[in-house]
Amino acid sequence: MNRRRRRLLITLGVVLLTTAGLFTANSSALWGDDDGRPLLLAHRGIAQTFPLDGVDNNTCTAARIHPPDHAYLENTLASMRAAFEAGADMLEFDVQVTADDRLVVFHDSTLECRTDGSGRIRDHTLAELRRLDLGHGYTADGGATYPLRGKGSGLLVTVEEVVAAFPDRELLIDLKNDEADEGERLAAYLATLPAERLATIGVYGGDAPVEVVRSRLPQVRATSRKIMKSCLTGYLALGWSGHVPGACRHTELHLPERYGRLMWGWPLLFADRMREADTRVILVAGDGPWSAGFDRPEDLETMPAGWSGWLWTNRTDRISPVLRP
């Protein structure tokens, strides 16, 4: 064997051994923890779901719900209580700021889609918003019937009321508008809470308001698209070595299952590494658009075996009995 061929074979052997070592070191089968159980994040409590095909930023999702099999309205105390009673481990809810500077729990920045009101949340006072019917616009048959109309009057609540209603539960606040002043308003309220309560509350949303919350209250677990992108690109570059970038620490990742497969050590070792970095990994169904959740028992077929991270769901009542019979 000539010297050139011998050198080529040695190089190839080193490459193969190195590659095998990298994959072994990042193998969930060898290193991941499969002894846990999934934790459930209840998205807006128990919500009315809707088909995702054709949905865009301007779609009124209340006008295309599935035929209701429950009477709960998202982001209301009743739907939140029902989610916890069904087995939720954490509650996510949406936040807007009113004309009188109150933090209210509502998804849309405008009122026309879901309620009998009109205009922006930002242009109405809390008292005005309390008079609206939150179920006014929900229909499953193109407007022929409105099964939830009249059932949402007076149900709008504030962030303070949600925090008080569930004093010992994990909460995740979604700042719906990418406005720095809304981050300032939320940070001012959160700063009034005792440290032990603040430890149970997370924040996510637009880059601008989340950055304000993180700068004012670095102890709060917070994330945004910018933070998640910084974390995941850094991990893709260096995660083969087991290194977890600083951007991944004390935060959370809303990760579509389809893209999680790209991560070193996916799924179990990746979740373990993030857990050691004090970061939650929340698995979102499919590609992750428009709040797709694990909402039906059949959706769980795509959940990684042995998954002990978080699952995003709009229907804790359907999913919890399957996971915890």
Rank of each mutant, 00 (worst) to 15 (best):
G142Q: 11
A86Q: 09
F93M: 01
D123G: 07
L77F: 09
D94Q: 01
A83Q: 13
S109A: 14
A140C: 12
S79N: 06
G135W: 00
L129S: 03
R81A: 14
D100I: 06
D94P: 00
K151D: 11
Q96P: 03
T145M: 13
G154K: 08
S109L: 06
A144L: 13
D108A: 01
A140T: 06
Y138V: 04
F84I: 11
T76H: 07
S153G: 12
R102D: 09
D94G: 03
A86E: 07
C113Y: 14
D89E: 13
P147I: 00
T115F: 06
D108K: 00
H136R: 12
D101Y: 09
G119L: 03
V105Y: 06
V97I: 15
G152Y: 05
A86F: 11
S118V: 08
A140F: 11
M80L: 11
H136Q: 12
R114Q: 12
G137F: 06
R149Q: 15
C113L: 13
R149T: 03
G143W: 07
F106I: 00
D116R: 02
M80A: 14
L91A: 05
A144C: 05
L103H: 08
A71R: 10
G142T: 12
D141G: 12
R120G: 10
K151N: 09
L103K: 07
A71T: 13
G135N: 01
T110V: 09
C113S: 13
T98W: 02
D141F: 13
A144V: 14
S109C: 10
F93Y: 09
T145Y: 15
G135C: 02
D101C: 07
A144F: 08
Q96Y: 05
T115R: 05
E128Q: 15
D108E: 12
G150T: 02
A127W: 10
E85Y: 00
Y138W: 12
T76I: 04
V105T: 06
T139N: 07
K151F: 05
M90L: 12
G87N: 10
L103N: 05
G154F: 07
T76L: 08
E85P: 01
A127S: 15
L103W: 08
T115N: 05
Y72A: 04
E112L: 04
T145I: 13
F84A: 13
V95E: 04
R149H: 12
T145C: 10
G150S: 02
S153Y: 07
K151T: 14
A71M: 10
T115Q: 07
D123Y: 01
D108H: 04
D141M: 14
G143A: 10
L126S: 03
K151C: 03
H124M: 11
E128M: 03
H136I: 01
R149K: 15
E128D: 11
L132F: 01
A82K: 09
A144K: 15
D133G: 01
Y146L: 02
E85F: 02
F106V: 00
G135D: 01
T110H: 14
K151L: 12
G150W: 03
R149G: 06
F106A: 00
R114I: 10
D100F: 05
I121A: 00
R130G: 09
Y72R: 08
G135M: 04
A144E: 15
R81I: 05
G142E: 11
G154A: 04
E85G: 04
R114G: 05
M90C: 15
L126K: 01
G137W: 07
E128C: 03
H124T: 04
A88H: 08
E85L: 04
G117R: 00
R120Q: 15
R130C: 09
H124K: 15
K151W: 02
D89S: 11
